[in-house]
Design a protein around this nucleic acid. Structure first.
Lengths: 179, 179
DNA sequence: TGTACATCAGTGAACGCGCGTTCACTGATGTAC
DNA sequence: TGTACATCAGTGAACGCGCGTTCACTGATGTAC
């Protein structure tokens, strides 16, 4: 990341995640973000072409950390039930400590400007876990993986609301996925 | 419904669903809706206290038909795999013929004003199908039902995009749900 | 039957507001000679 | 070492726009006497 080279850019993204954390994506207006970051409005457009580009960068920043961790898990295990569970747990645990989860999982999906990026991200997760469902002998591994990703995101949202690990939901998730 | 008693109110809701169909919820501004319904802006506030109340009514109108059909299915079968499948199929088939599916499934979830209503609706579906997972012997029927609803909504969105029944996804859905 | 009044859906101009975006400008830092 | 110029992040006032909402008003319909 070029955060060290562009601390102001990093500050704008960080302020956006903080604002999204307490409120919806609508709270991350250019006004609010720049005020929270302590810079003038014009500075925003020094670092981002427009608001859509900023939201895209926010989304990328959110998944950068999560993506790296999951790739580590994927490399560390052979495809199968254990890897599926480890990857999903990593995702959920990271979400519990992340800022702006609800905005990234829910609100940003209805932003037309970056809908493709969001869809592509989810499709990437599904592609990665397709191998696990294939190893489990699922007849349609790719379709199962897509539904699995939807379930994991639902658990992430539920845990965001309750504020902690939801053992019931996670157990139901493993039970549904793991025939 | 009081549509016959208040044709203008019905026209406003119908225009809103039509606008949501081609575009997002943002397209259902008071301006756009009233223009599409062929009434003046002031008329909007004769029938709805504010935009939030209108969105709530839109959401209720969308699920009114679907709810009745699903209740019929639930009454017609005993809890179990068959009923689960029949109810979900009814939901998905109705979505395929409905207007504004994406807005009702996706966009409206990030409207703070009616978040409770949306959550309550999904919780209602989950409660109804909890009995089916119990009959199937799932150890945590309520949690499984919640995840199942999330999967069904994911299939509805996928079918909206492709424009027709997605046999792969539906088959994967039955396979995941039906141990 | 005719007159007076009440009701109420509908009108449309006007409002204040916050939004995303622009732009002429500042000032610090780096480079050339 | 000193001077001139280029670069570029940052500034903040100003813009036009579309939004949700208000309100004094219209006109048709129903009711009372």
């Amino acid at each position: 990341m070029a955060d060290d080279a562009h601390p102001t850019r990093a500050a704008l993204l960080s302020a956006g995640l903080a604002l999204a954390e307490s409120g919806s994506l609508a709270a991350t207006s250019v006004d609010h973000v720049t005020r929270a970051a302590g810079v003038s409005k014009g500075t925003f457009y020094v670092h981002f072409a427009d608001r859509a580009a900023y939201l895209a960068a926010l989304h990328r920043a959110f998944y950068a950390e999560i993506g790296v961790r999951i790739e580590e898990v994927l490399r560390a295990h052979p495809p199968g039930a254990d890897r599926l569970r480890a990857a999903a747990s990593t995702y959920l645990d990271t979400c519990l400590g992340a800022r702006g989860v609800k905005a990234m999982l829910l609100d940003i999906r209805s932003e037309p400007a970056i809908a493709d990026q969001v869809r592509g991200n989810a499709a990437g997760f599904a592609a990665a876990t397709g191998a696990d469902f294939a190893a489990l002998g699922a007849p349609r591994p790719q379709a199962a993986a897509r539904l699995f990703v939807a379930m994991v995101q639902e658990v992430a949202l539920a845990e965001l609301q309750s504020g902690g690990v939801d053992d019931d939901l996670r157990a139901a998730l493993w039970h549904l996925a793991d025939h």
